[in-house]
Design a protein around this nucleic acid. Structure first.
Lengths: 132, 132
DNA sequence: CTGCATCCTACACGATACTG
DNA sequence: CAGTATCGTGTAGGATGCAG
């Protein structure tokens, strides 16, 4: 088990690598949440704001813009008096959404294990006066 | 000290957002790259450093520690004269790795589309003196 | 309702130097 | 080889207030 992975290492080399690319796009505290929250069809700004919970208007706006800029999100503005904006994912984003749910599923499955690992790690660290 | 977890907002709404959980773990410029680079078995520090290329020693170390703390990575130190440290993913991390490669695959498939979308978006923005 | 402007803090990351 | 220590920077993100 070695040769086939060489390409992975090579793929990871410079800034232009897809890894960093996707990272940049999905990075951030809210991107994934927004993508998932917006996945079930046209969603309005306020809906997202409530759905995601914890996100600030500023962050929602900024992330929405970035996603739109990357062609992951389509923002439809209805020039009505009370402004109405519908956000929906592009097909491309829906593909991403699949990987994302996979990620979330993983998180759900192992959350407790991870939490335990952290406690164990921290405890072990505290046991070591050196690490203090 | 592990204080100041402004990021996760801790236990308050942890159950509510496994999204944020996973985000926090995969967030960062290098986490994914490291996980992928370390996926093919025991890898030494320097190997990772060379494989990922662009990463600083400091960042490699920090991320390695975090992954280890979360129970995603096992760090085996061989107390030999030239220190030898082997890093390998835990089974849990391997599952994550699958989602990750999915993510990377998506990135590879749509990279050009995204780039185009950006250009289009930016161009459109420049066309609008109003936006100035 | 949807968003932008401003201010401010925290932290991720980089560069460099030192060490066992 | 595999880190650690320190300093400096950029920017993500939060809080608040104003606006079409």
């Amino acid at each position: 088990m070695s040769r086939s992975h060489t390409r992975v290492a090579e793929a990871v080399k410079d800034e232009a690598c897809p890894v960093t690319e996707v990272l940049d796009r999905v990075a951030g505290k809210w991107s994934i949440g927004i993508l998932i929250a917006a996945a079930h069809g046209p969603v309005r700004f306020t809906e997202l704001e409530r759905a995601i919970k914890g996100i600030s208007r500023r962050m929602l706006t900024l992330n929405l813009r970035r996603l739109e800029r990357d062609g992951l999100l389509i923002r439809t503005v209805h020039p009505t008096v009370p402004p109405k904006v519908e956000n929906r994912l592009t097909p491309m984003a829906r593909e991403l959404h699949d990987s994302l749910t996979g990620l979330v599923g993983w998180a759900e499955r192992h959350r407790s294990t991870i939490a335990a690992a952290r406690v164990a790690y921290d405890t072990a660290a505290e046991q070591r006066p050196d690490t203090d």
